[in-house]
């Protein structure tokens, strides 16, 4: 595109607009990092807590959740560094980032205000986490995330009505279904394809 003053026919103008909008595609690989990182971290924490609770007499199994604190910093630093390198920001990117940041704020408030109600944490967290997951699925136009959010809602109900064992296993199962499987699918797709406008 060297001749900047070249006058175009109407068809050529339409062709330029169509071509440029089609070319404006954004990589989605960063989204898969956060899904996989948090998927594995929460999966490990929740399963460890469940196994400690079932197999030992230790009453402070919730200590495993302290690993989430450095996890928050790793995720924020990764997002910040990647964001600085980003050469383009779409409206979808902004919705995606701020939805997950609002989820982080809600989660922090939840844990600070309701720390003593830890026996019912998983069902509430699944309900809160389902929303950004579903919105991400819509923004990225990626159905496995939407199905994952659906699984979160179902598992939250199961955690509520299913008793302690079901409640204890709801979170690790949710991580596999809602974060890890969609995360690997997203990474696989992101390596050879991109989503327009996301």
């Amino acid at each position: 595109m060297e001749n900047e003053e070249k006058m175009m026919t109407g068809e050529e103008s339409l062709s330029v607009i169509t071509e440029m909008i089609y070319k404006t595609r954004v990589s989605i690989t960063q989204s898969s990092f956060h899904l996989l990182f948090w998927g594995w971290l929460i999966f490990a924490c929740s399963l460890s807590e469940f196994l400690i609770w079932k197999l030992t007499n230790w009453t402070n199994a919730w200590y495993v959740w302290l690993f989430v604190i450095p996890g928050v910093f790793v995720s924020l630093i990764y997002g910040f560094v990647k964001g600085k390198r980003e050469r383009v920001f779409t409206y979808g990117t902004s919705i995606h980032v701020f939805t997950w940041l609002s989820f982080l704020v809600s989660s922090v408030i939840f844990f600070i205000v309701f720390p003593m109600e830890s026996e019912s944490v998983s069902k509430y967290m699944l309900l809160i986490a389902a929303m950004p997951l579903f919105i991400s699925g819509v923004v990225l136009r990626f159905r496995p995330l939407m199905w994952g959010a659906g699984a979160f809602w179902v598992l939250a109900l199961m955690a509520h009505f299913g008793g302690e064992t079901v409640s204890g296993l709801a979170m690790p199962v949710a991580m596999v279904v809602g974060y890890l499987i969609p995360g690997y699918l997203l990474r696989k797709r992101g390596s050879h394809d991109t989503f327009q406008g996301a």
Binding site: M7, M8, S13, I17, T24, T90, Q196, G197
Partner: peptide, 18 residues
Amino acid sequence: HSQLRLAIMSVLISVDSA
């Protein structure tokens, strides 16, 4: 109505910033 300027605007209309 110039090829490069229209191309720039077509990219920017699709994104928040580039």
